[in-house]
Design a binder for these strands. Sequence first.
DNA 1: ATGAAAGCGCTAACAT
DNA 2: ATGTTAGCGCTTTCAT
Lengths: 341, 341
Amino acid sequence: MSKAIIDDVAARAGVSIKTVSRVVNREPNVRQPTRERVEAAIAELNYRPRLSARGLAANRSFMLGLIYGKPGAHYVLDIQEGVLEMCRPHGYELVIHPGEFRDGDLANEISDLILDRRIDGVLLSPPISDHMEAIALLRDAGIPLVRIAPTIDKDAHPFVETNDLDASFELAEVLIGLGHRRIGFITGHPDHRAVGLRFEGYRKALRANGIAFQGELVVVGDNRFHAGEEGARQLLQLASPPTAIFAANDEMAGGVIKTALIHGLRIPEQLSVVGFDDAPIARQVWPSISTIQQPIREMAKTATSILLEQLRAGEAEEHPSMHPARLVLRESIAPPPAGKA
Amino acid sequence: MSKAIIDDVAARAGVSIKTVSRVVNREPNVRQPTRERVEAAIAELNYRPRLSARGLAANRSFMLGLIYGKPGAHYVLDIQEGVLEMCRPHGYELVIHPGEFRDGDLANEISDLILDRRIDGVLLSPPISDHMEAIALLRDAGIPLVRIAPTIDKDAHPFVETNDLDASFELAEVLIGLGHRRIGFITGHPDHRAVGLRFEGYRKALRANGIAFQGELVVVGDNRFHAGEEGARQLLQLASPPTAIFAANDEMAGGVIKTALIHGLRIPEQLSVVGFDDAPIARQVWPSISTIQQPIREMAKTATSILLEQLRAGEAEEHPSMHPARLVLRESIAPPPAGKA
DNA sequence: ATGAAAGCGCTAACAT
DNA sequence: ATGTTAGCGCTTTCAT
C-alpha cells in the first residue's frame, strides 16, 4: 500500500501526470470533472507526493525553521505547538533550532540551516527576534522571515507582537490603585527586549500617577527564578523596602515569593507580588501570582500563516499583528500594610 | 555563493561525480590523496549536498521523527535537545510530533508522518513509548524505532531506560529511615507506565521494612499539579493522616506543598514531601522538594545514537540502555513529628 | 484545458 | 580505485 506514485494516479484517472500535478498543487486550468476524477484516484490509491521529489524539482524544501532562545520551557513549547498547528495542514515540516542569543556560533548555525536544509522560511521567536545579525543573515540569503514579538526595526519584516508595555502599565496601575507607592521592579534579561518594555510600562504608570521613580527600587534580573530570589533579597534589605514587587516575568516573581516566604513575610498582607506571562509557576506557588496572560500560541499561529502566505503569494495578506495580552489577578496582591502606603 | 552542485565539485577536483559522492558519504574505495582533493574542492566551493536530491535518489528522507506525550514542558524540551544534539552532526533533521496517548487520531497522525514525510526512523518518548498501537504501526511499516523509557515489551525494539523502581525504592527508604511509617502516595497518570514503576518502588520499600501497605494512603493522580493539590487534600483529611507524602512526580509534589501550606502545615516539621524528576518546580517551591534526578538528556542522546546506527548499519551497536537516576535530597523532608512516628 | 519532454541533484548498479 | 549510465518522482517549460 501507498507506494503509489504520480504515474499510477495519472493512469487510474486517465490523464497525464501534469494534470495530476496541477490538482495536487491546486493550480488553475483544470476542469471540474477532471479534477474530481483525479481526486478520486488519489484517494483510492492513497497517493502522497514524495516531498523530496517535489523539493528537488521545485527547488524548495517544504520546511520551515523555528529559531528560538530559552525564555522558559512553556513559552517555547507553546510557540512550537502554535507553529506546528499551522504547518502540518499546509504540508510544511518544522525544523526547530534552539539558539543562544550571545552564542557566537548562532550565525554559523543559521548558515548551516539555510545551506544544509534549504529551509523555505524562518520564524524568529524571542529573544532571537531581535538578533540583528541573525536577521541580516537571513535577509541577505533571501529567506522569508517572520518575527514573533520583535521590539526593534519593525519596518524590515512582517511580525506579530503583543502589547507588553500597555499590559505592564495596567498591572502597575492595579498596584497603585491598591495604594502602593513604593513598588520594586526586577527587570528581565537585557537581551530580551520585549521584557524590557515591561519596565517601560512600570515607569509610565509611575509617571501617570505622580510617583517619583526611585532607582534603588529597581534590580536587574535575567528572567530566571534565581534572579527573582536574589532581587527580592536586595529589595527587602532596603532601609525602606517596597510594599510591592513587580517582576518582569513569572519565573522571577516565583523567586520573589520564595524569598519573601523564607523571610517570614506574609503575602499579600505584607508584600504584594506580580509577574508577567501567566506561566504555570504563577498558579503553582502559594499564594498564586497576579500576572499578564499573552496569547503566545495565537501569535505563533498568526506568524506562521503570514510566513506561509508569503511563501505562496510572494506577498503577505493583512493579518492583525497585535495580539493583546490580558490581566490575570490572583491572590498575590492586596493593599499595602496600614501606615506603609 | 553556495549554489555549487556535485558536478562543480567533481570538475574542480578533477574526478567524477561518483567519487565526490563517495567522499561525501564516507564510502570506502577512495584513495587518500583523491579524498583530500575532493574535500578541498568541497570546502572551497562551500558545497552542500541537496537533501532532497539525496533523498529522492536514495529513497530516504534524512529525517527522524520524535513522538512525545506531555509529561511536562521541561521533560519534553530536554528530550528534544538531547535528540537534536545527536541529529545535527549526522546530517539528520528532526521532525517533532506532539501526540496524545488517548487520542484516537494518533494512529492516523503517525501514518501521515510515515507516508507524507517518509521519516527514516522514529523515537518514542513517554508515555507514547508504551503505546502499543503506535509501536505496531511503526513496526508494520518497517520503520526503525527506538523507545525512550519503555516499561513493556522490551524485547521488541531497542530502548533506553532508567531505574524508576530502584530509585523510588531508595527515596522511600530515606523517608522510612527518618522514622516515617505512614507514608501517603499519589500515583501518576495510569497511561504513564514508567511513573507506575515508582509506585512499585514505594510498595517494595514498605515490604522490605515490614510496614503494612494501606490502601487509604494511596491516591490516584495524573501527573499534574492539580492532582497533587487534590491528593494532598484527601490524604490530610484522613482520621490518621500520613506524616509524609510521596508524589510520583515533582509537579504533583508541588501541589502537595501548596495544599499543605494552605492548610497551615509546616513543612517538613509536620509533613515531609518527596517527588520525582527533579523538575524546576522542585527548586522553586518553598521548601524545596527532595526528588530523583533522571539523566533525560543523556537517554535521549543514547536513543538517538542507537537509532542512527541502526539506520547506518542495519544493526545497532551495544549501548548501555540503563541510565541510572540519583537521589537529590532537599529541605522538604525531616523526621515525623514526635509521637507520630 | 491538457500533455510531452526535459531536467532538478543525487545515488545505485554496473562497468572499467 | 574510479567512472558511466540510469533512474528516483516530481515540476517546469513549451506544445497542442
